[in-house]
Write a protein that binds this DNA or RNA. Structure first.
Lengths: 193, 193
DNA sequence: ATCATTTCTTGTCATTTGGCAAGATGCCGC
DNA sequence: GCGGCATCTTGCCAAATGACAAGAAATGAT
């Protein structure tokens, strides 16, 4: 119920003073999402900029054949929002769904923009979140292109082990760009080693 | 030699008035890069925010085995900068190289930030560039995960045909995430159809 | 124009990954 | 606790892609 994590998150960015972090946190409202429910669904315009305090979420899109492809996983302590839809005010191509019961703090597009206008520090914070997301995606793109499925699996296991406690393997498989069958075999092969 | 393209580019974003577009363009300086020379090399801190007016460029990184992996192609009329290095002031993991003789217009990090502070419209423009890059990368990530190499090749051929006139196939192969051998076979197979 | 180097293609074979189906296991609602 | 559904594993075979090597074609330097 407390906004401690949220204001600490702002402050830890080193872009926002402690007092401003608290002021900022004051503007956020609570959001509770039950397991399997959605923060955002396809064709809607994303209007929530969410700090995830508890629980796990995933983003997914559909490919041409209509299969769900998991595009991202989110753990507590992260900002979640669909960048393109949120900033361009266009219909989202992605869905964001709770993998577990979730709690967090959000503001709307309008509120965010007002804060951006009035607080240069928060603007910097917003930019750094955007840049961080971009960099992570770039890293993932490179690893998808250069590494084998087994290597990508091992990396995920090392960097985000909690995901395996909260997401079904079929979601992890599409995130890694392989079928659940292949993932199962990779796991079997690695556990023998 | 004229900054027409540059100011038109600002104005066409619909975020910047015509007069401000011209004022903005005034702040940019000319940059000429000969074929095969670099806009940015690994381990340097990116300090140039470049509008490419003429010519083609590519970005590349090295994988674990030391192979060059092309991460992006740039055509005239695009903004080019290495996002993470530029905004975080960290050493770049990427190189940006001219595929042909190039000409463009640039400002430095400091100049860009000054403009961002004083001109909200330019800030919006900057954000929209960032969001655009992010969205494109997301689309590419999804297609890399869900489509076959042949489908990705066909898409690239349709969306960026000029690249094939200016980049060697081995660069295009690593961009698509395949070997030059496979790319050659895909081209052979498609030309038979 | 010539030579050297890089780029591109093609052949053979190995490896990775997928498709499909069957069975095993686990989880949820009643 | 039971039935049903989703999840995960495994077997068999096919398809996609890679590794390596040889040769052809294009390009660049002098």
């Amino acid at each position: 119920m407390s906004k401690e994590h949220l204001s600490a998150f702002f402050h830890n960015s080193n872009l926002v003073s402690l007092s401003m972090a608290k002021e900022l946190a004051d503007r956020f409202e609570q959001k509770v999402i039950a397991k399997n429910h959605f923060l955002l669904t396809e064709d809607k315009i994303a209007d929530e900029y969410l700090f995830l305090d508890k629980g796990y979420m995933r983003a997914f899109a559909f490919d041409i054949e209509g299969n769900e492809i998991t595009t991202n996983f989110y753990a507590p302590g992260q900002i979640i929002f669909e960048v393109a839809s949120f900033f361009n005010r266009t219909r989202s191509k992605e869905n964001i769904q709770a993998l577990t019961d979730c709690e967090g703090w959000f503001i709307t597009y309008k509120q965010l923009n007002d804060l951006f206008h009035s607080l240069p520090e928060f603007r910097e914070f917003g930019r750094s979140m955007l840049v961080k997301g971009f960099s992570e995606l770039k890293t993932r793109m490179l690893s998808t292109i250069t590494e084998t499925a087994e290597e990508r699996y091992a990396t995920l296991l090392k960097t985000k082990p909690e995901i395996f406690q909260h997401a079904p393997l079929k979601n992890i498989a599409t995130y890694l760009g392989i079928t659940d069958t292949s993932l199962s075999r990779i796991r079997a092969a690695l556990s023998k080693k």
